[in-house]
Design a protein around this nucleic acid. Structure first.
Lengths: 266, 266
DNA sequence: CGGCTACTTGAAGGATTTCAACGTAGGTGG
DNA sequence: CCACCTACGTTGAAATCCTTCAAGTAGCCG
């Protein structure tokens, strides 16, 4: 990975600028080598863009399932609201993530998805998805890999909720987000844009707002994080990773070994 | 669904008996209509069986990834052990579940899988999986549907851990397991085999053994569950479902609407 | 300026944990 | 065949992490 805690700040790269590498190219490009036809294929997936305002629902729980979509820019989250009004955030959706990969297979949505910032998505018709799987084995494997990554993130979230202290949970979440943003070129060295309220952190990690607030205060006081408006800096990655028992390998952004690629689609 | 809390006990059906419907047929048969070639295909997936003793690891975290496997009989669980020795169970694996659907795509396992009882699995070579996706669109969609179900179960687990009380978490887990076992024909009316220790429940739901014990005692005293050796009975499904806010629809076992099937695979 | 949303802090209370025992059942070896 | 061991379940008492309640501050915007 390119995460580099010693280098000076570099400019934050935004999706969709002309002549820029697309988000999916950045996400998948260092996973498997892509030829020019595959690049074009990826660009097609990102062609049917749509803007969504901050704080609005992309998907509603129980509603008829939508087509799949990819996030090209901005933050969103998948969540569920309980009967007593409490809320649980299941996962954050960042640029390069699929909003509802399985939607075409299911008749209704199991959870809702809501934006945190203004968001650009690109919709993908079920048929387009199917063609991909039929005719572009390497693309298909890359999308499955993405599903595998989601699975691991959910699993790690379960570990946090079940067996880590508030202090570790928050640290772990921050490191995960830094890691994931870095993978799509959206980390600026050791700092990231962080448009997440304390209430949202609380609802992600199963804590109360009050306790999140106090724990953040402690993390700031101890110099593990620096918050500046919407910017979050993690100045000593390794130290915090040790405290939170963050395993940098559970998000596998490294290029797949040729052996694997061959076995699968060679 | 066929769950029927009023009927008398019916015999528990075990996998792999001659002339019986196979587990995968039971799991997928009421999802999409399967022709005889597809049935044969499913049987192939269940052909390369292997026995694993209770309390042994099928998969080890960090180890080189194995091929995919399906569970044909018995219980297992996916878990992670933390640095301080604590353990978090991520999910239970029941007959019809895939042990590591994404293994062929990844270089190492993210979590371990361990058996609770004696287990029969059937290994599926990566190439076999790939052929399925290439040449048998309906089978592929059925496997993706299975991945979608796993995703929903993980999401619901996150909701439990984050925002439900111990009392609700345990109730919810029991209902989920009853539901899932029923889907593969392994529920005996309102009772299931339940080879799970209190320690394992604790490690699943992020609780201490002591508190699990006390909460089970309360559930028993209130008549919501009956425990008899390895048998668990849930005599008043609806009442408990209301208490735990169990949403019977998050596990979608209903047949997919023809509309969907057509849109996907013609 | 009023009103909103997010953040902050103190104090009290509670759900759950930890510590520490004890009971029971099944398996094994002397 | 009994002594011993281990795994699992059970219970009481004390401690704690975290929540809830309550209030106040700070920034933003029409």
């Amino acid at each position: 990975m390119t995460l580099n805690t010693t280098s000076g700040p570099t400019r934050i790269v935004h999706a969709n600028e002309p002549d820029e590498e697309s988000v999916l190219e950045r996400k998948f490009g260092h996973l498997v080598p892509l030829d020019s036809e595959e690049m074009a294929q990826l660009r097609d997936l990102q062609a049917r863009t749509e803007k969504v305002r901050a704080r609005s629902d992309i998907l509603e729980s129980g509603a008829k399932a939508h087509p799949t979509a990819v996030i090209l820019d901005g933050w969103a989250y998948r969540y569920k609201t309980l009967e007593n009004g409490r809320r649980q955030i299941i996962a954050f959706l960042l640029p390069g993530d699929f909003v509802s990969l399985y939607a075409p297979l299911l008749s209704t949505n199991g959870a809702s998805v809501r934006t945190l910032t203004d968001v650009t998505i690109s919709k993908i018709a079920p048929r387009e998805m199917l063609d991909l799987f039929r005719n572009h084995a390497r693309m298909a494997s890359v999308i499955c890999w993405s599903a595998a990554e989601t699975d691991r993130i959910l699993a790690e979230h379960i570990v946090s909720l079940g067996r880590r202290s508030a202090y570790q949970r928050i640290s772990h979440l921050f490191l995960e987000l830094l890691f994931r943003l870095d993978a799509v070129g959206l980390a600026d060295g050791d700092t990231i844009e962080f448009p997440v309220t304390q209430e949202a952190i609380a609802d992600t990690l199963g804590l109360s707002i009050v306790h999140v607030n106090r724990t953040l205060k402690r993390l700031r006081a101890e110099g593990h994080i620096e918050v500046n408006g919407d910017l979050l800096r993690i100045p000593r990655f390794d130290t915090l990773a040790r405290i939170a028992h963050f395993d940098r390998d559970y998000l596998v952004h490294r290029r797949l070994p040729d052996r694997l690629v061959h076995r699968l689609i060679g």
